[in-house]
Structure formats: C-alpha cells, structure tokens
Nucleic acid binder design. Structure first.
Lengths: 99, 99
DNA sequence: AGATCCAATACCGTTTGGATATGGCTCACG
DNA sequence: CGTGAGCCATATCCAAACGGTATTGGATCT
C-alpha cells in the first residue's frame, strides 16, 4: 500500500467515476484502474461496486475512505510540523487507537 | 514521500545506525541511505546528524519520528478495520488536528 | 439497433528501488 | 602515532513498479 494509492482511492471515491478521478489526478484512466484493483487485492477486500455508470463505494470502501483521509491528513500535518520546526506530539485518534 | 520511507526512517531512528537498520529491514545499506536522504530532501529539513559512530536524531527528526509512528499505526488500523468489515469512523488526533 | 460512456486488458517506455562494489572518514587501541 | 575496524556515502547495474497509448467489452439511453 502506498500513499499515492490512498490519494487515488479517495479521488475515485469522491468522483464515483474512475475516468473523472484520473483527470483530476492528472494521470490516465488505465493506471488508475490498476492501482485501485491492486489496493483491493492487497487488502483482500473489494472497495467498490462497478456499475455501468461508474463505481460506488461498498461498506468496506466507506470504512477505508475514512481511514485514508485520516492518514493523508496526518501526513500533511507531519510535513507542516517538521517544516515549522515544531516539537509536536502525535497520537492515534480515539476511533482507531488500540485499546 | 512513501510509507516505505516512513518505515525505513523509523527503523533508522530506533537503531541509531543505518547499517543495523538495513539488516533489520532486510535491505542493503546503500539504498537505505538514499531513501533517508531523499526523505530529508523532500521535507527540506535534515532529520539526522551523522556521526562517526552512526546517526542521531535532530529535533526535527524527533518530531518526524512521532508523526511517522502515528501514520504507520493508522495504516495498520485501517487494514484491520477494513478486513474486519467494521464501519469505523476515523478522526485526526488532537495534537495534529487542524484547528 | 446504434451511439455513447465507462471500466478493463494488453503492451510499451521510463522511472524508481534494491544489490554489489568501493571509497573516505573517524574513532579505538596497541 | 599508526593501524585496523566500523560506518555512512557514492557509483554503477539490474529488476520491479508506474504511467501512457491503444483497444476491447459491456451496459445504458435514445
């Protein structure tokens, strides 16, 4: 799993359409289709339902979407914190923290 | 920035020694050195101080280490949640959340 | 039925990542 | 001191991953 894959996944989920997501990501549709498929295979869980009009998130996809957004936000926060030279402490969010 | 890079960074930080970290990661030392360097360049911030005995975290590295661990933990949590089929909600941790 | 829209597959070139070989520097120790 | 050991950095090569183009198959809407 890569951060790019997570970014791609979020874009597809938001667009509901691989082709439009690809345009938004400034990559071509076929590689995007492959990255999504590869993510599903790595997780061992399908994330989207394919329809003739595009794709729709499955429940597992909804779960992944929330996590993916949290991860990407945390990456952004890390960059900001490090570049600001701030000694920030991090912790896992309550909903995903190990109990 | 990639998740692999973050994993590598954490290993180097924990070992304080690129060669030992490479062994632990089961990759060779030169590619690990390059990945660390590339991460520092991407961030525009040095993370380690190089000494004759190994490497030591700089303050910016300490900050990054906390964030990197949080990110990797969140990735693990995402995998577990999705594979468990659980509709978990995620949120950013307070210390890194946008205010 | 035909046009359209969409994801999927096949194939290719480029880029990235890891391995091996080697150099240079610093510290430990006689 | 000087010699050897340990460690990071650099150079070069090979393999794997990524993105692009071309094209196909299938579903929907006139």
């Amino acid at each position: 799993m890569s951060l790019a894959q997570l970014k791609y996944f979020v874009a597809v989920a938001e667009e509901g359409n691989v082709t439009r997501a690809a345009t938004r990501l400034r990559i071509a549709q076929p590689p995007l289709t492959r990255q999504i498929r590869s993510l599903e295979e790595e997780l061992g869980v399908p994330l989207f339902e394919r329809t003739a009009r595009g794709v729709r998130l499955l429940p597992s996809g909804e779960t992944m979407l929330a996590h993916a957004r949290a991860i990407l936000a945390q990456v952004d926060a890390a960059v900001v914190a490090v570049q600001a030279g701030a000694p920030v402490q991090t912790e896992a969010p309550p909903s995903v923290r190990s109990r």
